[in-house]
Simulated scan of single mutants.
Amino acid sequence: MTRRHLLPLLGLVALVLTAGCAGLFGSQPISDEQLNEEPPSPYVWDSEVDAHITITENARFQAVYRMNDTRMELFRRDGFGGRNAIPVSAVRYRYPNGTVVTGTELVARGGSINRSRSRVAVSLPDDSPDGGGGQLAFTSSSTPKRFSLPTFVDGSYAVVLPPDRRVEVFPFGKVSPRGYEVVTDGDSRVVRWDDVTADAVSVQFYLQRDLLIFGGAAAGLAVVGAVGVLYYKRRIEELREQREELGLDVDTDDEFRDDPPPGMG
């Protein structure tokens, strides 16, 4: 291949590598539509905890964090120790005086919200308190019947489960870290920690009907197993009767006893 033919190929390779590096290491702003869309339900600003997370029916969650810094990085850890950015929408910032601004207003006031492959970096507005302050809220996606996220702030946490979900029965329900309590709020359960110092909070939950389904399946398997045992015993009886009718001097019980083979006793 001549040098003239190599030039277009080299140009294409350079373009691909450049695009890949930009996607891997660069960052880009999130659209105004995502930042300003309305949350599924009003954010819970006036809670007593440092992190208040409400899990909704459609495998999404709404989070409100009390800021102790002027910057926060939002991500999930993968199974290889790396980080992946989480999708965020309906971003709001609440000043300590109670004023709430949208995501685009936060940016217009000197803050920033940028997404890269590994994280969503949020910086508070220039007029926010020094050293952090106020509350940051956003909406994101979760996993059906399981919520897990790093602890972006230290302190007290509350995770509100969707209605009729429970965590009490292991292994269907699992909560980490320990030191939590479960309280009832209407038809919802709230998992609370007074002080979280672990790297992540994880809550696996279930519907009440899941236990009924599992119990029914277990009962069905038990019935099938009992029928199998009865069938096996019936076949043994039939074999014994057939041998007796043929006059065979063979004790079928010997075939099924647990004594070791001859010479092995």
Rank of each mutant, 00 (worst) to 15 (best):
residue 2 T to R: 12
residue 5 H to L: 14
residue 5 H to Q: 15
residue 5 H to A: 14
residue 6 L to H: 08
residue 8 P to E: 03
residue 9 L to P: 02
residue 10 L to N: 13
residue 10 L to F: 10
residue 12 L to I: 15
residue 12 L to T: 11
residue 14 A to M: 13
residue 15 L to H: 02
residue 17 L to W: 07
residue 19 A to I: 01
residue 19 A to C: 06
residue 23 G to E: 06
residue 26 G to I: 13
residue 29 P to S: 09
residue 29 P to N: 09
residue 29 P to M: 03
residue 33 E to P: 02
residue 35 L to K: 05
residue 35 L to Y: 07
residue 37 E to T: 13
residue 37 E to I: 06
residue 39 P to C: 05
residue 39 P to D: 03
residue 42 P to H: 00
residue 43 Y to V: 08
residue 46 D to E: 12
residue 46 D to L: 11
residue 50 D to Y: 01
residue 51 A to D: 00
residue 52 H to C: 01
residue 53 I to R: 05
residue 54 T to G: 05
residue 56 T to C: 11
residue 56 T to R: 08
residue 57 E to K: 15
residue 59 A to H: 15
residue 61 F to V: 01
residue 61 F to M: 03
residue 61 F to R: 01
residue 62 Q to R: 10
residue 62 Q to C: 13
residue 63 A to T: 00
residue 63 A to M: 13
residue 66 R to S: 07
residue 68 N to S: 02
residue 74 L to G: 05
residue 75 F to C: 06
residue 77 R to C: 04
residue 85 A to N: 14
residue 85 A to M: 12
residue 86 I to Y: 03
residue 87 P to T: 07
residue 88 V to R: 03
residue 89 S to G: 12
residue 89 S to N: 02
residue 90 A to F: 06
residue 91 V to Q: 08
residue 92 R to G: 04
residue 92 R to E: 08
residue 93 Y to P: 00
residue 96 P to A: 05
residue 96 P to H: 01
residue 97 N to G: 09
residue 99 T to P: 05
residue 101 V to D: 06
residue 102 T to Q: 04
residue 104 T to E: 01
residue 105 E to N: 11
residue 109 R to V: 15
residue 110 G to E: 06
residue 115 R to F: 11
residue 118 S to C: 04
residue 118 S to V: 09
residue 120 V to G: 03
residue 122 V to R: 00
residue 123 S to C: 06
residue 123 S to Q: 15
residue 123 S to W: 07
residue 124 L to R: 05
residue 125 P to N: 06
residue 127 D to N: 14
residue 130 D to R: 07
residue 131 G to P: 10
residue 135 Q to R: 08
residue 139 T to D: 05
residue 139 T to K: 01
residue 143 T to L: 15
residue 143 T to D: 10
residue 144 P to M: 12
residue 144 P to C: 10
residue 145 K to A: 15
residue 154 D to K: 08
residue 154 D to L: 04
residue 158 A to P: 10
residue 158 A to R: 00
residue 159 V to L: 14
residue 162 P to C: 12
residue 164 D to K: 12
residue 167 V to D: 04
residue 167 V to R: 00
residue 169 V to A: 14
residue 171 P to S: 05
residue 172 F to Q: 09
residue 173 G to I: 10
residue 176 S to Y: 14
residue 179 G to D: 11
residue 181 E to A: 02
residue 186 G to I: 13
residue 186 G to H: 05
residue 187 D to E: 11
residue 192 R to M: 11
residue 194 D to M: 09
residue 196 V to D: 01
residue 197 T to V: 13
residue 198 A to I: 07
residue 199 D to N: 03
residue 200 A to M: 08
residue 201 V to I: 03
residue 202 S to Y: 01
residue 203 V to F: 04
residue 205 F to S: 09
residue 206 Y to R: 01
residue 208 Q to M: 13
residue 208 Q to E: 15
residue 209 R to T: 14
residue 210 D to F: 05
residue 211 L to M: 12
residue 211 L to H: 06
residue 212 L to Y: 10
residue 213 I to N: 04
residue 213 I to Q: 02
residue 214 F to T: 09
residue 216 G to E: 13
residue 217 A to H: 02
residue 228 G to V: 07
residue 229 V to N: 11
residue 231 Y to A: 15
residue 232 Y to C: 14
residue 232 Y to K: 14
residue 233 K to T: 07
residue 240 R to C: 07
residue 244 E to Q: 10
residue 245 E to V: 08
residue 247 G to T: 14
residue 249 D to I: 06
residue 254 D to S: 08
residue 254 D to Y: 05
residue 255 E to D: 15
residue 256 F to M: 06
residue 257 R to W: 04
residue 259 D to E: 15
residue 261 P to K: 08
residue 265 G to P: 08
